[in-house]
Computed example of a mutant assay.
Amino acid sequence: MAAITTPNLTPPRLKLVLNLLSVYTLWGSTYLFIHFMTEHMPPLYMAGCRLLTAGLILYPYARLTGHARPTKQEWLSAGLVGVLLLAIANGGMTVAIQYVPTGIAALLSGMLPLFIMVLNWLTFSKVKPSKLALSGLLVGLVGIGLLVKPGGFQSTSSESWLGIGIIMLCNLSWATGTLLSGRLKLPNQLVSSAVQMLVGGGMLLLVSLVVEPVNLASISYAPTKAIASLIYLVIFGSIIGFTSFAWLARNAPPQLVSTYAYVNPVVAMLLGWAFAGEVLPGQSLVAGLIILSGVVLISLGRKR
């Protein structure tokens, strides 16, 4: 990384850009693969297997490459963040996708910047966001509104509304975990990500064994499509994507970190159109451009 230099892009800046691109694109694809993973398998069980597998790969790798063993306090702090980000938010999203289409789930997740901005303003930093950042937030929400389409939920079933409520809870939990990440005593970034996955995945698996008709060996009955999706999510969604997010949560302003929630719905809808036969009308393309405009405004507003 340090060997790559350009006249106007320093290595730390390049690392920021690469981590943002990782979260923007890889996490945008996870909605579709979560759907594939849980079509014929219980959601909490598969989410727990995904996160626990990723943690069991990442933690030994971190230790073998010289990263220090986390202290008890660091385990507790990283575990708390893992519960908020992964057990509640990620696990909840996996459940919610059973009740709402992947595109709608991604769109509702796009409300996350509002949760982060308001929580940071009222409870954490007590600092009002800049006018430019607020403008970017509003522009992004307008784009999300166009994607959802007014009146789109008028005939929604009670089960779909349950999914919508779960996603709102996921947004609140993820926003809280994101803001806490920069304030708690956490271990090295790689170790912290591994601990969060181990704690979050372990909790999901324990809950699954209690509330879902599964046992530890149920993964052996999963169809090939579910296993392939699980492998993709472990590598790209958890190990690469979540590690990139963990770095951003500790090194970038909350408003900038939250912009991924504007881009992910666009990626999710494009993938749904390409691989799941979902319709992508012209209005959605226009909304995508508006969303990206909001990302630019928030990114500029963080400097004011």
Rank of each mutant, 00 (worst) to 15 (best):
L180I: 15
P265E: 02
S258R: 08
K149S: 13
L180R: 10
I34P: 03
V266L: 08
P187D: 04
K225T: 14
A222V: 02
W161E: 13
P101R: 14
G55S: 04
L172M: 09
A252S: 14
K149W: 08
S155Q: 13
Y221M: 14
G28N: 09
G145H: 09
L190P: 03
L114Y: 00
V191N: 01
E74D: 07
Y221P: 04
G288K: 08
G272P: 03
L209E: 13
V17M: 12
T178S: 15
F33G: 04
P223W: 06
I227A: 08
L230W: 01
N251A: 02
L184E: 03
S218C: 13
H40V: 11
L248I: 04
F245K: 07
I235N: 01
R69C: 15
G163Y: 00
P150Q: 12
R183T: 00
L64M: 13
V267C: 02
I235E: 06
G237P: 00
S130M: 13
I4A: 10
L172Y: 09
G301L: 06
V23G: 09
L132W: 13
L179D: 00
L138I: 14
Q255C: 01
W27G: 11
P129N: 04
N251G: 01
A276K: 10
V199N: 07
Y262G: 05
L56E: 03
E74Y: 05
Y31E: 07
A96H: 12
P101S: 13
T94R: 02
L107C: 12
Y260R: 02
S130V: 02
M46E: 02
P70Y: 03
L76H: 09
L285V: 13
I166M: 11
L112E: 11
T243E: 10
W27L: 12
F36C: 04
I235H: 06
F153L: 10
V118P: 05
R183L: 09
A68R: 14
A222R: 05
A249L: 10
S160Q: 15
L52Q: 01
N90E: 09
L119K: 05
R183W: 00
P11E: 05
L271C: 12
A226M: 09
I166S: 03
E212L: 03
V295T: 13
T10C: 07
A2P: 03
N120H: 11
V210N: 04
S284K: 14
A78T: 12
